[in-house]
């Protein structure tokens, strides 16, 4: 029982970062019907920017909360700009081109960012540990029955889950309650009708990329702190978050969030009860199963052909 509880906590903690990345996939798909395969690299660049900020501010010895705020804020801002630039330079000129052209471009952007990160001007080829801004600590320790049956929750688990839940709340508010969010929902349905409403559809698309990229940055920073920073770190989480978005029903925002948590849980349970050798493969098994059984995903939405 305690072992299972521990696995569930770990799964939610990992799933929370998948959820944050998956939100960007699903929102971009919503407005452009495009799988932005460079999204995992935006997550990686979030980690890289956070790394440089953390090194930069280290000598000043700021309190943990101040340092974290600057690191997260800086990474989110930088990735928002990056997301804007990716859409503006790579995807916008191809807006009316066949899907395949855009898909290949997305993969190209992804490779470009991976290789840029491997140069020493951006980061370098070798993994680096994140500067010690916040130490991993057990904050909840729960003894169940005997001294051997302990369940622990670390501050990083709380950070991951707290940020993910909090940001999901902020996102829901933006999408459901603000003028920008209404424009986003309109543009997800149709460009031409939206522009007849007076909406600048290009600006709405930029906004969507910036929002999704800032969320991916948060996941990148959490994982940088939790593990380390490396130029290819975006690959696996990127693919798994993509599976999470498909699982939740691509285009559905709550679906992406739930999908992320579910993928995190499945992965951790497989690791804990079967073998860690399967933990990466399981996401792809899930993908194949969804595509066979229910291609519209758990919360799959009504799908309109986009004009």
């Amino acid at each position: 029982m305690d072992y299972l509880t521990q696995q569930l906590i770990n799964g939610l903690s990992i799933g929370a970062t998948y959820a944050l990345i998956a939100l960007g996939y699903t929102m971009v798909y919503g407005v452009l019907r495009l799988i932005n395969f460079a999204h995992g690299e935006v997550y990686m660049m979030g980690a890289v920017v956070a790394y440089w900020i953390a090194i930069g501010i280290a000598p000043w010895g700021w309190p943990v909360w101040g340092a974290l705020a600057v690191i997260f804020g800086g990474a989110m801002g930088a990735c928002a700009v990056l997301g804007f630039a990716i859409e503006f330079f790579a995807y916008r000129p191809l807006r009316n081109k066949p899907r395949l052209v855009v898909l290949i471009t997305a993969i190209g952007v992804s490779l470009l960012l991976q290789n840029l990160a491997q140069t020493r001007y951006v980061f370098g080829p070798t993994p680096e540990a994140f500067p010690a801004v916040i130490e991993a600590k057990t904050v909840v320790r729960w003894t169940m029955g005997g001294p051997d049956n302990v369940v622990t929750v670390s501050n990083l688990d709380l950070l991951s889950l707290g940020l993910s839940l909090g940001l999901m709340g902020v996102l829901a508010w933006v999408v459901l309650r603000t003028r920008q969010g209404l424009a986003l929902r309109a543009v997800s349905y149709r460009f031409d009708t939206s522009s007849l409403m007076g909406i600048n559809t290009n600006r709405t698309i930029s906004f969507t990329f910036m929002l999704g990229s800032a969320l991916a940055a948060v996941a990148g920073v959490v994982d940088a702190i939790r593990y380390d920073v490396r130029p290819l770190m975006g690959l696996m989480p990127g693919l798994k978050a993509f599976v999470a978005a498909v699982l939740g029903g691509i285009g559905s925002i709550p679906g992406a969030f739930v999908g992320g948590l579910v993928i995190g849980l499945i992965e951790t349970l497989v690791k804990g009860y079967l073998s860690s050798a399967y933990s990466d493969a399981v996401a792809f098994v899930v993908l194949i199963v969804i595509l066979l059984v229910r291609p519209s995903g758990i919360l799959g939405r009504y799908e309109a052909e986009k004009l």
Partner: peptide, 26 residues
């Protein structure tokens, strides 16, 4: 200049109120 397009093109997934709000987007 407001344009009521052929076939109405209501946003089917949004409420009537939200459709109206979009008309006054600017």
């Amino acid at each position: 200049i407001s344009h009521v397009p052929e076939g109405r093109q209501i946003f089917p997934h949004l409420s009537a109120r939200e459709n109206l709000m979009l008309g006054g987007y600017q």
